[in-house]
Amino acid sequence: MTSVAVIDYGMGNLHSIAKALQHIPSKPTVLVTAKPDEILAADRVVLPGVGAIGDCMSALENAQLDRVVHQAARQKPLLGVCIGLQIMLDESEESGSTRCLGIFPGKVKKFSEQMRDEDNNAIKIPHMGWNTVQQNQHPLWNDIPDNSRFYFVHSYYATADNPEHCVGTSEYPNVFTCALARDNIFAVQFHPEKSQHYGLQLLDNFIRWNI
């Protein structure tokens, strides 16, 4: 049986993702932990996160978990969720400017408050709710139809420098990257743990992912 560690660095709703992982058919052993040895002993690692990215980055560094994430990123399947995706880029505009982990080259930017939809209504921020995701080929999309809806809640979005890293896009109202991948790493801006059937399918695909 495969084991998965959910990194607990004091930020965000870890219980939702842990519960979702416990619910999927592949039935992994789920450990929510802040201990580096436990994280690195697990077969797979999930990096969640909600809230302000500056706080998330400080919390990771204070617990010396940034090095652990880098190590996991070299060794085993790693899934980033929400801020867990954003924190994998080089830097974010949030909280002034926040230096991040640099696992994917690129920046995190804020949705512009000047944006308007086709009916000329102001675009609401945060981008909150169920939006369609356009997929690029990747095993983690197995058994999930293209353009399926996932649940989003965020005010910042990733811009990856390398277009090959982009494996999923959404529109609000402009196209933005909502899934990044390279090698053994996959990261999503939406919340698979709150995206009902297809969200659970994606988590199950992550647990079954053979690299």
């Binding site: 709703n13 219980h15 939702s16 519960k19 979702a20 416990q22 619910h23 649940y151 809640v153 919340h191 743990e193 709150k194 995206s195 009902q196 969200g199 659970l200």
Partner: peptide, 29 residues
């Protein structure tokens, strides 16, 4: 939260930061 995987909001009697922490830890979004 252990069985239904869509966003959950909880209202009523939320008066302290501790109340929020408890609900989020329980699985509220």
């Amino acid at each position: 939260a252990g069985e239904v995987f869509i966003p959950l909001t909880v209202g009523g009697g939320i008066r302290k930061l501790q109340d929020i922490r408890r609900m989020l830890n329980a699985g509220a979004d």
